[in-house]
Amino acid sequence: MSHFLYDVTGSTVDEPDADTMRRVLDGLADADDEHPDVSLSHESGWCLSAFAGGLLVWENTEDSAAEPGELREVSRDEVLRLFGLLAAGDIAAVDALPWRR
C-alpha cells in the first residue's frame, strides 16, 4: 500500500517509516499560520492531518461524500499509532474512532 507524508514545510516523504513520522511530528514545533499541520495520506484517499495543539482531522481527499471528522487533544503517541494504522491500510480501525463530524 502506498502512503506519503507532508511535513510542516509542505515537503513530501514517500513511504515514511516510524522514525521519519516521529521527526515530522516533532516539526510541528515550527508550525505557523501558513503551514499549521503535517499529514499522512494513503493511496485510498484517506488522510490524517495533525496540528500542534492536538487537533487531528480525518478526511478522504478524493471522496467529497465522505464526511470529515476531528478529534481534539490527541497525544503525539496516539497520532503516531494512527499514522501507523493508516500507513498499513487499516482504514476501518482509524474510521472506528469517535470522530466529531
Score class of each variant (00 low, 15 high):
residue 80 L to F: 05
residue 57 V to Y: 11
residue 94 V to H: 02
residue 66 A to L: 10
residue 84 G to A: 08
residue 85 L to F: 09
residue 88 A to P: 03
residue 64 S to R: 14
residue 39 S to A: 09
residue 17 D to L: 04
residue 86 L to P: 02
residue 49 S to L: 08
residue 73 E to F: 15
residue 29 A to I: 09
residue 7 D to W: 02
residue 67 E to F: 10
residue 78 E to T: 14
residue 77 D to C: 08
residue 8 V to F: 05
residue 85 L to D: 13
residue 63 D to Y: 06
residue 99 W to T: 01
residue 72 R to H: 14
residue 47 C to F: 04
residue 1 M to P: 02
residue 73 E to V: 09
residue 4 F to M: 04
residue 32 D to I: 05
residue 27 G to H: 05
residue 17 D to Y: 00
residue 46 W to Q: 12
residue 57 V to F: 11
residue 56 L to M: 07
residue 92 A to C: 01
residue 17 D to K: 00
residue 25 L to E: 06
residue 43 E to S: 11
residue 17 D to R: 00
residue 80 L to A: 05
residue 20 T to P: 06
residue 69 G to S: 03
residue 84 G to I: 04
residue 53 G to H: 12
residue 96 A to F: 00
residue 76 R to G: 02
residue 14 D to H: 08
residue 92 A to L: 04
residue 85 L to C: 06
residue 10 G to M: 04
residue 29 A to C: 08
residue 98 P to Y: 09
residue 22 R to N: 13
residue 57 V to P: 04
residue 26 D to Q: 09
residue 40 L to I: 11
residue 70 E to V: 12
residue 89 G to T: 01
residue 25 L to T: 06
residue 44 S to G: 07
residue 38 V to S: 01
residue 61 T to Q: 15
residue 14 D to S: 11
residue 99 W to C: 05
residue 34 E to T: 15
residue 55 L to N: 13
residue 35 H to F: 13
residue 74 V to I: 09
residue 67 E to P: 11
residue 69 G to R: 04
residue 40 L to C: 06
residue 58 W to S: 02
residue 97 L to A: 01
residue 9 T to Y: 13
residue 45 G to Y: 02
residue 3 H to N: 14
residue 19 D to H: 00
residue 35 H to T: 06
residue 55 L to Q: 12
residue 46 W to A: 08
residue 1 M to I: 06
residue 69 G to T: 07
residue 12 T to W: 05
residue 45 G to S: 04
residue 35 H to D: 10
residue 74 V to C: 09
residue 59 E to G: 07
residue 89 G to M: 00
residue 83 F to T: 00
residue 75 S to W: 01
residue 29 A to W: 10
residue 6 Y to M: 12
residue 35 H to R: 10
residue 79 V to D: 03
residue 11 S to W: 11
residue 52 A to S: 14
residue 43 E to I: 08
residue 38 V to P: 00
residue 66 A to W: 12
residue 23 R to E: 13
residue 100 R to D: 15
residue 61 T to H: 14
residue 41 S to R: 10
residue 98 P to S: 14
residue 71 L to I: 09
residue 64 S to I: 11
residue 43 E to P: 01
residue 95 D to L: 07
residue 5 L to P: 02
residue 41 S to H: 08
residue 22 R to H: 13
residue 89 G to N: 02
residue 38 V to F: 04
residue 26 D to E: 12
residue 45 G to C: 07
residue 18 A to Y: 10
residue 65 A to Q: 14
residue 66 A to R: 13
residue 59 E to L: 11
residue 36 P to K: 02
residue 90 D to V: 00
residue 11 S to K: 13
residue 81 R to H: 11
residue 97 L to R: 09
residue 57 V to A: 10
residue 4 F to G: 08
residue 74 V to E: 06
residue 21 M to F: 01
residue 98 P to L: 13
residue 76 R to I: 08
residue 63 D to E: 14
residue 47 C to K: 11
residue 65 A to I: 09
residue 83 F to M: 02
residue 3 H to Y: 14
residue 25 L to I: 08
residue 33 D to N: 14
residue 79 V to W: 00
residue 11 S to Q: 14
residue 93 A to N: 06
residue 3 H to R: 07
residue 45 G to P: 03
